[in-house]
Amino acid sequence: MEKLLEHLSWLARVKLCNYERKLLVNDIAKIMEFFNRLGEIDVKDVEPTTHVIELVSVFREDKPGKPLSLDKALKNAPSKEGGFFKAPRIL
């Protein structure tokens, strides 16, 4: 479980402290147990349910609308520079 948690935190690019790790290991164990139980059900002949609403083919015409103003677009950004969103260094 420790390994799985480590992998998940790498995927999510989130660093965890020891305390958080202890809490989350328990949570994840519970979640995994739940999914393992779901996995026991025989669904061989069941069509996967991908959507619960029976709508199909909802389209939009290819007509341009008005985009947001730059101010509005960046309003919730925690960090910005010269009209750009600013994000951490990535490697």
Partner: peptide, 29 residues
Amino acid sequence: LKTKLFCSCPSDYRGKPPNTYVCPVCLGL
């Protein structure tokens, strides 16, 4: 196409100032 795939933002973004062709859909709000 004149617009993006899932929203009506114009698609001719080349040479435009950053983040001026965006809306709640393509910003994932």
